[in-house]
Design a binder for these strands. Structure first.
Lengths: 384, 384
DNA sequence: ATCATTTAATTAAGAAAACTACGGAAATCA
DNA sequence: TGATTTCCGTAGTTTTCTTAATTAAATGAT
């Protein structure tokens, strides 16, 4: 990209907003210091953002610990009092809505819920009707934008669902148009795992570089490098659920045969569990209890090892050393994550030279969705 | 990164040099257009670069095809007449030297050669002596810098070899100091595959995003995204040779068991070949002829498929659709690459939605080494 | 041959956004 | 109360880009 003076402003504005997202609350002086810019510059940018109602000033009451010397800074944060974004979580079964502020969005805000699909064919139309009904119940009517998270493969640049084995109607539907008709605001379609990864980053600002792997109906991944979602030439990336596991012959929803997803998705685990223990009930609670009682049986070890090979391979290729695991695997006995972690370390090259970590974490979508909305709608990058 | 006016100049200078590297030859006006900057700006930057002897003007004689209307532009290129860099290719067996110009470096320039290691322990000292002797024979004595390519795992930010199973002495030796004593110029240590990938990019400017996989003593990879080497938090990336292949129990030089490298490195292929055909001579030429005559036998198919799983997994994770294969695999019957290509397409998700390519190419190190030198020594990024 | 046209390169003037330097405001501490 | 420290804003300077106008060097038509 080429720089000229007219672009510098917007760019530094983005940087300042990003910094404030991470810090949560900060003064003009603190922002200037942490960004390496002069105080007048930071002050001027903050003034603009306050005028745009993107930031707000907040009363101090920040007497925690040592009382600082000198004039106290006027603390700033992303605006928590205004409407902000409408979050739509389009899940495989249900769709949830949340009114998200620009700052401090958390996953307790999900309120309204309706089914995502119909048994018969007209899911898109019914979904639009349900959305319209739910929208009427919201307290806010006007939003800066709508952030819609969808499962499957999403082309975020095109706001399109490319492939969704469990929610096929979203592939042909024009989601931005549907949502736009109802909400009358710009719409961003984002991949669920990418939103969760970004959400994790902003909830744990120390985690700047990691691979997030979510286990659920499918197995999806997302990559954060330098605190930003990894952008690749293709709309697909981090898709390690569909790495092939040699020796696995299960047919996957994606059309291929042998994806690790067929081994470690919820359904995949249940299949293996049931095959190894045909007399037990084939449901998740039974599986959970069984693993807690009996530890890691060979069928589970093999599945976990297959996933670990894919994860470790991704770490080697991406140059990462930290894995965040979310979803169903975190609901099982802690020995499961421990086994996976050991197995990942076994396959990750960096483990020979330094530390490789593989830890569980809760899913946090809201914060990530807001971050994407702020990044792409509130302080957008200039084209070119 | 934060921008201020003082940085804009350097940044746009970098962009202009990059553009000229890709274009080969271009005029001020062409550069301005392709970079989206104004003519006066491009002209001013070019003037600086000419004064620094980084660029040179070149006589036209470019009457190919239609005679263009209007005043012809004065064509520019990276300086081909001056010394530029000293390239040192530290191979597993031999070390080669080349005097590299800033523009149009090709691999015919490798001239002086000496052994890389000694049977007894003092390899570093002997290597320094050999280097000193070879350096005396060069026509140029003064270089902008020395680019040293090394096999194994290289931390390019630290100019250090982290791990080199086939050339262990480089791990503990202070290569920049050794080379600096002899050549008296700044030294950059780069990973061989990264140099080759960048070289491929500049020899085929259309290839902006790809994964390069080199087969030889080991199996190494490098990633180019947007025409630039992919930078990751760790000094390791693109290391797909050490992805584990389930069911493979060979011990790898890296310390792990089951790396795909043990299947598809030169030695790995020979092992499998010999095991399947114990009566035949265990050498590369025999293997080549045998494959040409008998096609892809099961042992080879399995090895290729294991490599393909790792490659396809890397494509899925990195969001890429193009693979460049270099090294020993390109020396075999074309059916080998064809098999690998099919197998990669089988495992690559993008193949369901678009095209996935896997093609062979010659190794080109010189161009990549120069590109790295230009990028890091001639028009360096400002620290921050 | 000459002149209009087209493209390239340079010069000059203007605008954007950063920086430094300084001064007033608001707190702590002696 | 006054010294010190820190924060924030104002004023003026600097850097680098842009646009607009000018000069330069080619082609092609009359």
């Amino acid at each position: 990209m080429i720089f000229h003076p007219a672009r510098m402003g917007q760019h530094n504005k983005r940087a300042l907003v990003r910094q404030l997202q991470k810090a949560g609350v900060a003064s003009r002086a603190t922002l200037a210091r942490s960004l390496g810019m002069s105080q007048p510059t930071a002050g001027k940018i903050v003034d603009e953002l306050l005028a745009e109602k993107i930031l707000e000033e907040v009363e101090v009451l920040e007497n925690n610990g040592a009382s600082r010397l000198g004039r106290p800074g006027r603390q700033l944060q992303l605006n928590r009092s205004r409407a902000g974004f409408l979050g739509i979580r389009l899940g495989v079964v249900e769709t949830d809505l949340a009114e998200l502020p620009l700052g401090a969005a958390d996953d307790s805000l999900w309120k309204l819920t309706f089914p995502s699909a119909q048994a018969n064919g007209n899911s898109a139309e019914v979904w639009e009707k349900s959305l319209r009904a739910a929208f009427k119940k919201l307290s806010a009517k006007k939003f800066l934008g709508v952030i819609l998270s969808a499962p499957g493969i999403v082309d975020e640049a095109q706001n399109k669902v490319v492939f969704s084995p469990n929610l096929h109607w979203t592939e042909s539907a024009d989601l931005p148009a549907i949502v736009g008709r109802v909400c009358n605001a710009p719409v961003l379609v984002v991949q669920e795992e990418r939103a969760m990864a970004l959400g994790h980053h902003f909830n744990h600002p120390g985690d700047e570089d990691f691979l997030l792997v979510d286990f659920g109906t499918g197995v999806g991944g997302a990559v954060i490098v330098g605190g930003k979602p990894f952008v690749s030439p293709l709309p697909i990336n981090g898709e390690l659920g569909h790495t092939l596991a040699l020796g696995n012959h299960r047919r996957c929803g994606c059309g291929a045969v042998g994806c690790v997803e067929t081994l470690v998705s919820r359904r995949g685990l249940l299949e293996s569990f049931s095959a190894a223990n045909p007399k037990l009930k084939k449901d998740w609670a039974t599986l959970q209890n069984f693993i807690s009682a009996n530890g890691i049986e060979p069928w589970l070890a093999q599945s976990l090892d297959a996933a670990a090979v894919a994860i470790a391979g991704a770490l080697n290729v991406l140059g990462l050393r930290r894995v965040i695991i979310t979803g169903s695997l975190t609901e099982l006995s802690s020995s499961v994550l421990a086994h996976l972690s050991r197995s990942v370390q076994n396959g990750a090259m960096w483990a020979r030279f330094g530390k490789v970590e593989c830890v569980g974490a809760p899913r946090c979508r809201a914060a990530g969705m807001v971050a994407i909305g702020v990044d792409r709608l509130v302080v957008p990058d200039l084209p070119d």
